[in-house]
Design a protein around this nucleic acid. Structure first.
Length: 313
DNA sequence: GGCCAGGAGGACC
DNA sequence: GGTCCTCATGGC
């Protein structure tokens, strides 16, 4: 299916540091896994071709790409006197804040701490490859196991929930797993807690080259195992409370909690302060934290600033 | 080969 | 409450 939309640029989002698993197939063309599904999207200006049906786009991808928010309006709200942010927003005007899976964001940003982006990607890929949780073949885009639908219900917003039951068709994961490894158009899904527990647990995590972070991940697995309503409670919280709940966990400090709040819970007022934001405060604002970092759209502006500063290093 | 990476925990003051 | 040190590992 084809759509036209402004303020949407695949390459910018892929390089914005919010998603680590997109696979570039060609110029302006990406293979994107999420919610135990995958889709190929090809961009030509403001025209986008999705490999899925319109029905699936409505059910999953419209929400995933945050298509209902007008990012032009968020850019227009920037203070005219703030030259740096205006330039940054113009430069990265195709960035959107994706609605990604909460569990995946928690694990991904635990892995991200004191780590560089290429190695974060490598670590996350190692996690997915190790547990071989769910595989979705290109264009079929079907959940490949029983609880895939459940996962969607748990993770996607309400309007999507209502239709999720319709997507279940034939499953063929086990049969095709071995062939699929050779096919670059197929990606393993992000493992759920049960996949990690069933396939090696604590010891398997320590074999993935994640450094000291594997312990934090395992602690989170254990907590989630014993507190199955954790995500549900998190989703009901506002930004302030989600930060508090997240930071009670070992391995999640202020920066990681902000990333999870922004990318996993879509709190657009969350503003992760990492080494790049510190550099921006220092070099662009004479050491004084700019007002936009406390704005209701701070997380969006943070992404523009992060992308701009890092891309032009 | 040293410094850095979308940091955080812990000890110490 | 700050400030330092350490943590595992690879990218550059």
């Amino acid at each position: 299916m084809i759509i036209n939309i402004k303020n949407f640029n695949l390459e910018q989002i892929a390089d914005s540091g919010q998603c680590f698993r997109w696979r570039k197939l060609d110029e302006g063309k990406y293979l994107i896994p999420a919610y135990d599904h995958q889709v190929t999207v090809a961009q030509s200006g403001e025209k986008f071709e999705f490999s899925c049906t319109g029905e699936e786009y409505k059910k999953i991808w419209e929400h995933y790409f945050d298509m209902k928010i007008d990012y032009g309006r968020i850019i227009d709200a920037i203070d005219d006197n703030d030259t740096f942010l205006k330039e940054a927003a113009a430069y990265g005007s195709g960035i959107r804040i994706l609605n990604q899976e909460l569990w995946e964001m928690i694990i991904s940003y635990i892995i991200s701490q004191n780590n560089n982006i290429p190695r974060i990607k490598k670590g996350i890929e190692a996690v997915c490859d190790r547990y071989k949780a769910v595989v979705c073949k290109e264009t079929e885009c079907q959940p490949m196991r029983e609880n895939a639908d459940k996962s969607i219900k748990n993770n996607v917003s309400k309007n999507i929930k209502e239709e999720a039951g319709q997507s279940k068709k034939e499953l063929c994961a086990d049969k095709t797993t071995n062939d699929i490894k050779q096919n670059e158009n197929v990606i393993y899904g992000f493992p759920h807690l049960a996949d990690i527990e069933k396939n090696g647990g604590r010891e398997s995590l320590s074999e993935l080259g994640l450094g000291y972070r594997d312990e934090y991940i395992w602690l989170m697995c254990q907590y989630e195992h014993e507190n199955t309503d954790f995500f549900e409670r998190l989703r009901k919280c506002d930004y302030e409370h989600s930060m508090k709940m997240l930071m009670e966990h070992k391995g999640i400090g202020k920066k990681v909690a902000n990333c999870i709040s922004l990318f996993g819970l879509h709190h657009l007022d969350a503003c992760p302060i990492d080494v790049w934001m510190k550099k921006i405060i220092d070099e662009e604002y004479d050491g004084v934290k700019p007002a936009w970092m406390s704005d209701r759209y701070a997380g969006v502006y943070q992404q523009y600033a992060f992308f701009y500063k890092r891309d032009r290093k």
